[in-house]
């Protein structure tokens, strides 16, 4: 049976629906991170909690481009919510790479899907990026307004290696999430015949 590879209205609506669920769950998780310090690990918690949503989506996203669009739509909503245009750009790139990773070759496997999910979840870094993108001008301004010790101590607390650690942390969380997601798929959605 030939499958049409062009995206149809039905697919676009599926993307919109899953994007909404993903975002709502992300917001629920976000209430956990009200304490500013915890907000750094939010993308990691999101990667674990939202995994079943992504996994279920992937079973319905048979065409190339759907994962890209899912990421792009989520990124767009976050951008409009106020997290900056970088979120959209990063989401699109992560989504595209995840899409390629998942659909490369003829057959899908759990490994490919998991790898795709690790890449997909990295979009969360973009939400925190402004904090690190402050740049030298910011620190200069900081030392002028608040004194050099402030500027120095903050600089010490946000060294450049935080970002790679964050990326690694999200990847690990995504792997955990992936296994959690697969368990949920088997336990509920396969068992009840929804997929």
């Amino acid at each position: 049976m030939e499958k049409k590879m062009k995206l149809e209205v039905k697919d676009l609506m599926t993307i919109g629906i899953f994007a909404t669920i993903y975002i709502v769950v992300k917001i629920i998780v976000g209430f956990v991170g009200v304490i500013p310090i915890l907000c750094v690990i939010l993308p990691m918690i999101t990667a674990v909690v939202c995994a079943p949503i992504y996994m279920l989506f992937v079973t319905k996203a048979e065409k190339f481009g759907m994962i890209t669009l899912l990421a792009a739509v989520v990124g767009a909503v976050m951008m409009i919510a106020g997290y900056g245009w970088l979120t959209l750009v990063v989401s699109f790139v992560c989504g595209l790479l995840a899409d390629v990773m998942t659909n490369i070759g003829n057959k899908r496997s759990f490994g490919k899907i998991l790898a795709g999910y690790c890449i997909f979840s990295q979009w969360g870094v973009a939400m925190l990026a402004p904090v690190w993108m402050q740049g030298d001008a910011y620190f200069k301004d900081l030392s002028e307004t608040m004194g050099k010790e402030f500027s120095d101590s903050f600089r010490a607390m946000t060294p450049p290696w935080v970002i790679p650690v964050l990326i690694a942390g999200i990847a690990v969380a995504a792997v955990i999430g992936g296994f959690f997601g697969r368990k949920i798929m088997k336990k509920h959605f396969e068992r009840s015949g929804i997929i």
């Binding site: 676009l12 993307i15 919109g16 994007a19 975002i23 709502v24 629920i28 481009g65 669009l69 899912l70």
Partner: peptide, 22 residues
């Protein structure tokens, strides 16, 4: 392109519904 605007419009529509469900 519709491939981008339509899913986003669905988010606008579906969001309050999912909130209610939650």
């Amino acid at each position: 392109p519709k491939v981008f605007s339509l899913p986003f419009a669905v988010v606008l529509r579906f969001f309050p519904t999912v909130k209610e469900d939650w």
